[in-house]
Design a protein around this nucleic acid. Sequence first.
DNA 1: GGTGATATTGCAATCGATTGCAATAGCTGA
DNA 2: TCAGCTATTGCAATCGATTGCAATATCACC
Lengths: 343, 343
Amino acid sequence: MGIKPVKTLTLSDIARLAGVSESTASRALRDNPVINAQTREKVQQIAAEHQFKVNATARSLRTQKSHTIAVIILFDAKTQQTITDPFLLEILGVIADELTRQGYDMLLSTSKTTDKDWRSYYFDSKRADGLIVIGQGEHDERVEQLSSAGVPFVVWGAPTGSEAFAVIGSDNRQGATLAVSHLLAQGCKRIAFLGDIRHTEIEMRYLGYQDALLAAGIKPEPLLQLNTDFTAQAGYVQTQQALFKQLGSLDGIFAASDAIAMGAMKALLEQGISVPQQVALVGFDDIAMSAYCTPSLTTVKQDTQAGGKLLVAQLLGQINGAKAASQLLPVKLIERQSSLRKE
Amino acid sequence: MGIKPVKTLTLSDIARLAGVSESTASRALRDNPVINAQTREKVQQIAAEHQFKVNATARSLRTQKSHTIAVIILFDAKTQQTITDPFLLEILGVIADELTRQGYDMLLSTSKTTDKDWRSYYFDSKRADGLIVIGQGEHDERVEQLSSAGVPFVVWGAPTGSEAFAVIGSDNRQGATLAVSHLLAQGCKRIAFLGDIRHTEIEMRYLGYQDALLAAGIKPEPLLQLNTDFTAQAGYVQTQQALFKQLGSLDGIFAASDAIAMGAMKALLEQGISVPQQVALVGFDDIAMSAYCTPSLTTVKQDTQAGGKLLVAQLLGQINGAKAASQLLPVKLIERQSSLRKE
DNA sequence: GGTGATATTGCAATCGATTGCAATAGCTGA
DNA sequence: TCAGCTATTGCAATCGATTGCAATATCACC
């Protein structure tokens, strides 16, 4: 409906209107101190009057900086659906805010897009100055590839201390230990673990689960570890099956995410099993909904604010020449009704 | 850690390696039929060998197309937090997938960023070829501004049929009518409405709520409409207050979103009020978690798949010269436990 | 053999902003 | 009055790819 196609003004138009050269106009607009104060103000005023905006493309081409960060959300190969995990979305939001606060644009893409080669697509093509990779399982060959290509990038995942690139993530092992110790303290004897240990982060949570059991003198039973996708549905289905097989013997569940935990809770309640009395339940993430299910969900809170900011800070650091450094974030157990057995 | 800073190759490098001019190389890579087949293949092979990627910035500058769409997520002015509403995130995911499927990049930004002027920032600066605006309340002056500036853009909201730009959205009024009629059919007499009617979409839902009541010969009571933000917390707090004031008289709640509904459910159960027996509850959106709370939530399902795809299709259409056209999407009532009173 | 048509390829301008270096003007001090 | 400085400003190249138009080569047909 554009009856007013308003040909966008260019720097050269502004320069002409102000009666100066393009170079002077450019410097004036960028507050280059070498320019006379009066000239600068005149140029800036004229630019403002005409709503002049620097052409970001031309600037990028000349300066060789896009001032854009690509954020890539990884998926499970099989769960080919769109972003669903509330936790990932939460951290995505924090990153978005932080990037804009730092004056960067954010290019978002789902893993499907760029199946082939992120470096080519985002970096070589100069679409982005750096990459943030979010998602389960950084055992991705594409990440390794980035690493060896000298591209600035950061991964949200499980820092091991030995990786060649920067990984920011929660102390999953410690978090799991907190959760499981808490369940044990509530009197649980047989605790199931719902989560897919092929993802490094979940593997760490499983290790923490084992740590806690061993510390209590309990030998972990491999059969109690059930691979479960990051959805309420998967949690629901797995719990139903687990109940079918081991009804009566389970008295605790540690779910690798809150979504999984909510699915599990549904399955339990549906079978008339009381939570937390018969089976106590703990999740992981502390998504917004966790406080509002019934019973409310005990969970391990990940600090998304700190995480998102750190990812951005670390990446921008690299872009400015700092070297990659991983970091582990502390977590906190949030005790709610799903695990607290009143005495 | 980049020990291998691999200076990226340019088109001119490829041309030299292939022994042709830059123009020929460019045309060969773009499969321009005017180029001899052998030449084309040779150039393409050399480009592939060297992992050459066209510099997107240079191409954009020359072609005057960014092949990028900016997606702007609006916030409530007061709720200055990051994206939280699960529904918005879901539709965002669909848009992301669809854009990449169409070969477009997606620039994501939260409203805070660009508080000033979207047209300037995204369009005049040539960062994006078009805009998608998502969020409650398109009564935003910035939207009006876009409209009069001839920028290709689409809004997710409440199509009224009279707006000057393209709005894609669900049939909120019809959805609400379905929901409330259902509550009435379940025997509810006094139904509260939780939602902020200052948002156009919610206003439509409120109108639908009134429609259903009037159709049943019930006069809507203004006191039963409670402005509520899009969060579980707000739903919880408002419901607590409502209960405090009108305990015993309410027998139904229609919440303007599932998150609100879940908060409301929590408040009800906490007070020992049974759902759906004493108070029946219906939400809106059908987010993933709705099926997994207890009791599971009856809700009005919005077709996010269709919505996202339509937004993209409509926008790309505009970019290619088609004219803006709004569209209303049908919704569906999903009956679950929170409202079904068994006889 | 000559002429016009057709198939390929290359030259050079262009997109819009940035910046190294040169140029000019104005001023100071001897 | 003039060399020497400083403060400003402008010229022109550059970033990398695309494309209108011209140039050349090739071929067919009379």
